[in-house]
């Protein structure tokens, strides 16, 4: 029950924050960017200095404080992309298309960060950078899929076509996520402990939490900025031509 409540409040706060950043003055975005920086620095301090080393993995485990938040942000962005894609097909509107584009790009960014950090973490833990861990493998497949999604958006000139087709592709990729996950797990299973704040020391929780909020602030800044860029482009594309032909050039 508290879990559901927490989720609803979280979604409302993040959604409201995003709305405010998109609609509000540019200084708000700058403010959140500064906040993100402050949080990142203090998060780094908590993660590198304050939190104790892990009993089994030692200092290597500290990479979790940035790896896990990056994965969360990627997951949030991908979910947002799916919701926007579905919503667009039901009721087309340019803000949904712009948000879909922004979330795919931001998701690709955080996913790539999470993936690289994950494989760096893998090197001392498993002895290899790439151990075909199901979660990282699924993520790698999805990153390629979303790279294809963004390439598609680049290769279509007609704005309306781009919006509809990328919504279709966005839905198809999102539907593939559970299928990829299951197939990769069956294909090769490697046990992996779940990283979540409830299983670790209070100092570790604080480090993870600070970094998570830092990444969330970054996520909001990136997403709103990218959204505004996409909106500006479609607005330019969809503005009706002048009533009278311009002088011949």
């Amino acid at each position: 029950m508290t879990h559901a409540l927490f989720t609803v409040v979280g979604v409302a706060v993040v959604g409201g924050g995003l709305y405010a950043l998109v609609r509000g003055p540019a200084s708000w975005r700058a403010g959140v960017a500064v906040l993100a920086l402050v949080l990142l620095v203090s998060g780094a301090w908590y993660g590198l200095v304050q939190a104790p080393p892990d009993r089994e993995m030692g200092n290597v485990q500290r990479i979790m404080y940035v790896h896990v938040p990056a994965q969360w942000m990627a997951l949030m962005a991908v979910t947002l992309n799916f919701l926007c894609s579905v919503a667009y097909l039901f009721r087309p509107s340019w803000p949904k298309d712009a948000l879909a584009e922004a979330s795919a790009e931001v998701g690709l960014f955080f996913g790539a960060v999470g993936l690289v950090l994950g494989s760096i973490w893998g090197k001392p833990t498993w002895g290899v950078y790439w151990s075909w861990d199901p979660r990282l493998t699924s993520e790698a497949i999805l990153l390629v899929a979303y790279a294809g999604y963004l390439a598609l958006r680049r290769f279509i000139d007609d704005a309306e076509r781009r919006a509809v087709w990328s919504a279709v592709v966005g839905i198809i990729i999102a539907v593939d996520i559970p299928i990829i996950w299951f197939s990769v797990r069956w294909w090769r299973s490697l046990h992996q402990m779940q990283s979540s704040p409830s299983t670790v020391d209070p100092d570790m929780v604080r480090a993870l939490r600070w970094n998570a909020f830092a990444f969330l602030a970054l996520w909001l800044v990136f997403l709103s900025t990218r959204y505004l860029i996409a909106r500006a482009r479609t607005e330019r594309e969809m503005a009706p031509p002048p009533m009278v032909a311009e002088a011949a050039t």
Binding site: P240, P241, A245
Partner: peptide
């Protein structure tokens, strides 16, 4: 009725 069609950067039909 006030139909315009755009291809990329160019208006093929305007108003």
């Amino acid at each position: 009725i006030d139909v315009s069609k755009r291809y990329g950067q160019r208006w093929a039909l305007a108003r």
